[in-house]
Design a protein around this nucleic acid. Sequence first.
DNA 1: GATGAATGAGCATTCATTCAT
DNA 2: TATGAATGAATGCTCATTCAT
Lengths: 195, 195, 195, 195
Amino acid sequence: MKVKRDKPKYKQIVDAAVIVIAENGYHQAQVSKIAKEAGVADGTIYLYFKNKEDILISVFREKMAIFVHNLQVILDNNKDTSDRLLKMIDNHFRVLHDDRHLAIVTQLELRQSNKELRLRINEVLKEYLSLLDTILRDGIENGELVAGLDVRLARQMVFGTIDETITSWVMNDQKYDLMKLSPEVHKLIMNGVKA
Amino acid sequence: MKVKRDKPKYKQIVDAAVIVIAENGYHQAQVSKIAKEAGVADGTIYLYFKNKEDILISVFREKMAIFVHNLQVILDNNKDTSDRLLKMIDNHFRVLHDDRHLAIVTQLELRQSNKELRLRINEVLKEYLSLLDTILRDGIENGELVAGLDVRLARQMVFGTIDETITSWVMNDQKYDLMKLSPEVHKLIMNGVKA
Amino acid sequence: MKVKRDKPKYKQIVDAAVIVIAENGYHQAQVSKIAKEAGVADGTIYLYFKNKEDILISVFREKMAIFVHNLQVILDNNKDTSDRLLKMIDNHFRVLHDDRHLAIVTQLELRQSNKELRLRINEVLKEYLSLLDTILRDGIENGELVAGLDVRLARQMVFGTIDETITSWVMNDQKYDLMKLSPEVHKLIMNGVKA
Amino acid sequence: MKVKRDKPKYKQIVDAAVIVIAENGYHQAQVSKIAKEAGVADGTIYLYFKNKEDILISVFREKMAIFVHNLQVILDNNKDTSDRLLKMIDNHFRVLHDDRHLAIVTQLELRQSNKELRLRINEVLKEYLSLLDTILRDGIENGELVAGLDVRLARQMVFGTIDETITSWVMNDQKYDLMKLSPEVHKLIMNGVKA
DNA sequence: GATGAATGAGCATTCATTCAT
DNA sequence: TATGAATGAATGCTCATTCAT
């Protein structure tokens, strides 16, 4: 039996939600607007999603899967820690660079959700962060990263830097080329700011 | 006539707002709750604030002033870049460590505000970030920081790392000692993760 | 072609409706639940019934037929008015005593329907009440009942008493033996409360 | 401190609810309609009532209080059981005869409420029924009513008869004079139908 | 006959803000 | 200044019914 998540209308509605949220803002993204954008009736939404929160979680889960999948491929094909980190940054930047709506949604709008929803979003994020942990642990093991590195702090530094960089870019209306920043961001993460 | 914000009721209301938001969450922080906590009538709020958004901005502005003031003192008393950064991190951690309500409000609750409000919050943040820029520019100038450092990116790295570290601490219910992390965070920012 | 109500699916759906209404209550007895209980698709309902109201009317009509049929047999086999009334009460109590679901549906749930539906239910009820009128008129004629009895009022007294007695029993979760009450109810109707 | 129930707007809204329910039916009695009829804003309703159900309970409670109060006066001023019952019937008929809207609401519309609300309505009713029980017990004691009378069944007979009589009158569009029926109803209850 | 995915109208409730006192 | 009763706009979700297959 086909699960709902694989049906075309499911994806249609998720994609519509990204567009509606990006263009109207989180608090102005009414279910009826999403339904209209998806080209379905309001009630149809509820054949595929339990409630509005379920749509938002799904948006995040579906899109996050892209990041996770890409990062998994990067890990499989690259064994050098520096390469892995550069490619991770580059991938993260590129996915959001290529989908301006998605960038607005993940960096600004979804963060307006309430604490409960954000906790559920964080759970989805964990999969991604655990792959980052793998990069860091492998790097420590093979001597590429500094011995005794606190993996949790390092993860927060890497993710915090990437996230803040993208958020600033979005808040500046994406008016400069995010892609060009990855080498420099990579260098900062690897070597810090010290001369 | 004194300006309104020096009057006791202005501060009463701002402090009440921090408590109400921390204890109830952003979306459950109704004006009537804040008024009750401040011991004034609902209508009185509007003698001191234009609207609800104005209260929230004021909360952020009043509390941010502490960070800015402290950081200014740090800059005045320390000329070494590494010292300045360590003390900045330490200060940032300590202020939020000492006021659990404030930590919840700045790291979680106020981020649920809409884009417009967050843009205004960012403006308040600018003063703080420009002091950080000063640290970075001074460091580059005197050779302590790497030549050719992209100040904007470096600022995003420093702030992103600090912010993500604190947010993780708050989301983990502040159950470990944030203060102990500053030396390690400082080291990461200075030297990166590379061996 | 047989009329629809003789086909097995018609009865299947009516019986399913009684069960679903009794177990879920009138307002939670959605067409889809009735269809599921009956083992047919939602759309199939509409091959046998004009609309949801039509199902409910049919439930009442089908079940009421039992009362009417039994009462007709009682009238055919008993000519004494007091006997007829006792047996009528006894029959009314027994049918609902033996089908707890039906008792809930007729005494509580179906009364939640709107005025229009209740008017149509009353029409179905008329057949039953006109047999009661026959008992009363016969009784007046042969001198068993008081001369000059207002048949309409007497009918309302008999039916109101029976109905209120059963409703109280259902609202008390059918926790006492309804059957045992018929002689006493009969006596009240025949002789009133006066010493 | 004045309680809400004593404020003029409380009564205004209750009376508006009776009119709106009687004229539009239970399921078409939207809160906004009640507010409009009461001449207040929708939100004002919620300053006086917890929710819609609370309005309906209050309607019943407020109006039932009239019956209870009148019946209490009757008990105080009449010691003869037959008199008491006649006056009770007469009072019950007269109150509903004098307020056609209220008659529709209590006999038809409020019965469409769900089981939970009806249970709460029944609790309000209990006060009235317990006064009736007092009449019956006093009557048995002083020998006016039949020795060994089952008070519960007698109560159901009296109330069921009154209720069914009024409901029939309402369903017949109140087109005959209800008041004239009380002596006959009283006789039926006292003496039964037997010759 | 039978299916079940799709439809879309309809409504209770909250809460920031006002303004008469 | 200070009050707090009153306002009224705005929206997620359900479910009876349809109709293409």
